[in-house]
């Protein structure tokens, strides 16, 4: 991909600003990204992706799991990261559990296929 402005499928350009931080390869990386982000940034990402989630899901459903074109796969990874943003927004009202320590000893060493990752 040569220009960041074209890294997502047509129609999803408004999410481009979230690609560099939230498009990640594993469950554990997405969790770490959310846990170390500022709440304002998590909320901004959450609001933007939730507003487009249904259309993004329908777009990704055109393809076989694990065999998406790169632009669609990036969009799918944004949807995966949406779940992590939801933990902060819908459960805690802060980036991670109240009173929890970070960095944490807890790691997701194997996530669901695809893009779950394995440590």
């Amino acid at each position: 991909m040569t220009a960041a402005s074209s890294s997502l499928p047509p129609g999803f350009e408004e999410l481009e600003g979230f690609v560099s931080y939230w498009v990640l390869d594993s469950n554990d990386q997405r969790r770490a990204a959310r846990s170390t982000a500022e709440m304002d940034d998590i909320q901004r990402f959450y609001d933007a992706i939730v507003a487009r989630a249904e259309q993004a899901i329908v777009h990704c459903e055109q393809f076989t799991l694990g065999q998406m074109p790169p632009a669609s796969e990036r969009l799918f990874k944004l949807l995966l990261a949406m779940n992590h943003a939801a933990i902060a927004v819908e459960m805690h009202g802060e980036p991670r559990a109240f009173d929890s320590t970070w960095p944490s000893a807890v790691r997701i060493t194997q996530g669901p296929w695809p893009h779950g990752g394995r440590i």
């Binding site: 469950n27 997405r30 969790r31 899901i57 990704c60 459903e61 799991l65 799918f76 949807l79 995966l80 949406m82 779940n83 992590h84 939801a86 933990i87 459960m91 991670r96 559990a97 009173d99 929890s100 320590t101 944490s104 000893a105 807890v106 997701i108 996530g111 669901p112 695809p114 779950g116």
Partner: peptide
């Protein structure tokens, strides 16, 4: 796709629960 999103939510809810317990 939807099932995969559910599994992601499931995994990250679990990780958050155990973060609370380990801490």
């Amino acid at each position: 796709i939807r099932h995969r999103l559910q599994l992601e939510h499931y995994a990250c809810r679990w990780a958050e629960v155990v973060l609370e317990d380990v801490t």
